[in-house]
Simulated assay, not measured.
Amino acid sequence: MTSTLTALLFLGEFLHTGETEFGKILSKPIIWVKPNFMIPKGMPVLIWCQGTPEAIEYQLHLEGHLYAQQSPKQLERRNTVMFRIPKMTLLTAGQYRCFYRIKELWSKPSDPLDLVVTGMYDTPTLSVHPGNKVISGKNVTFSCRLDTATNKFFLLKEGRSSHPQHRYGNIQVEFPIGPVTTAHRGTYRCFGSYNNHAWSFPSKPVKLLVTETNTISFSPYFTSLSSAEPWDTYLLATEAEFQQAPAFWDHTAHNILQIGLAFLVLMALMCLLVDYWLCRKRIQEQANRASPQECRRRFRTQRTPGQMTKRCAGHS
């Protein structure tokens, strides 16, 4: 009885230890890509896979088939490896997963990583209706058109490109959005595609600006933005300032020009007055200096001293 109990306890401890190690080995690795999951045709891309420090080998699978494998090279980073794709093409676009191995056991697969090759077809055009400046609570519709017939369109917002919207269509599709909030503000692009991993060139960007409804009438730029992110608040305030700036600066420039012209006229008048005053002063001083000299000259030429004395006395 005692030996049986001991054997059962030993078996339970062994199974518990095995489950712990087995669970650790089967934990899935983390996979990510740089610089982006959308890669222009012919450009390189880096795929990273992170497992555990005990891993001795990593494998990268594309659409369920082995694409590449390698072992960690740096002791300080044995839990991470990098797979490099030299050129992105139709053959290298698709869904990737990675695995790592400890001894003879392989981990669970990582979450799927979908890589898209862009620049395969013509460039679509993107527009937004009723316009790219709307009030919060309104509805807008993005329209994406590609003259080259396709079967699927994608709409992406910069900063959230890992979660694109998609619609099926041949030439043109519409993406209704609304009621919009300040969270919908941003820059949008659209793509056309024949499958999920081969897209067209990106459309030209379309920027959507959403303002709050409680905007003060005499100053549209003072808007309630308590729910917006600080950077979004800065972008909205800056854009509103630039929208109001042309009229403001035209009025200000006109006033400054008038003040400047009045100042120049005043300075010119002051210069004329000063010049006139200095001229009068010089003439008066010359006249004062000329009187005694004239008296002395006449004194020398006059025959009658008494007459000269009288005239000089008269001048004095």
Rank of each mutant, 00 (worst) to 15 (best):
Y188E: 02
E285K: 11
S200K: 09
I256H: 06
L266P: 00
R280W: 09
L236I: 03
L269Y: 04
L236R: 02
E229S: 13
L272D: 00
H184D: 11
L235D: 02
I171N: 06
P246V: 04
C279I: 12
P176F: 03
S224C: 13
V206Y: 02
S200W: 03
A183Q: 12
Q243T: 07
F248Q: 12
D275V: 14
D275C: 14
V265M: 10
Q243G: 00
L269C: 06
W277A: 15
I259P: 00
G192A: 04
A290S: 06
A183T: 05
V206I: 07
P176G: 04
P230A: 14
E212Y: 10
T187C: 05
V173P: 02
H184C: 05
R189N: 07
L264C: 06
E239R: 15
D275P: 01
S219M: 12
G260H: 15
L236W: 01
Q172S: 07
S217I: 15
C279S: 13
P230M: 11
A247E: 14
R289L: 06
R280G: 10
I216M: 06
D250T: 08
T215R: 11
R185L: 08
Y276I: 12
V180E: 04
A228D: 11
N214I: 05
Q172A: 04
A262E: 05
W231E: 11
W231I: 13
A240E: 14
T213S: 13
E239K: 14
A268Q: 11
E174N: 07
G186Q: 01
F191A: 00
R289H: 07
D250E: 15
I216L: 10
S224T: 13
N196W: 02
Q172M: 05
I259R: 09
W249L: 10
A247V: 03
S227T: 08
T211H: 12
N195T: 01
G178D: 04
D232S: 08
V180H: 04
P246T: 04
P292V: 02
P202A: 03
L269V: 08
T238A: 09
N214A: 02
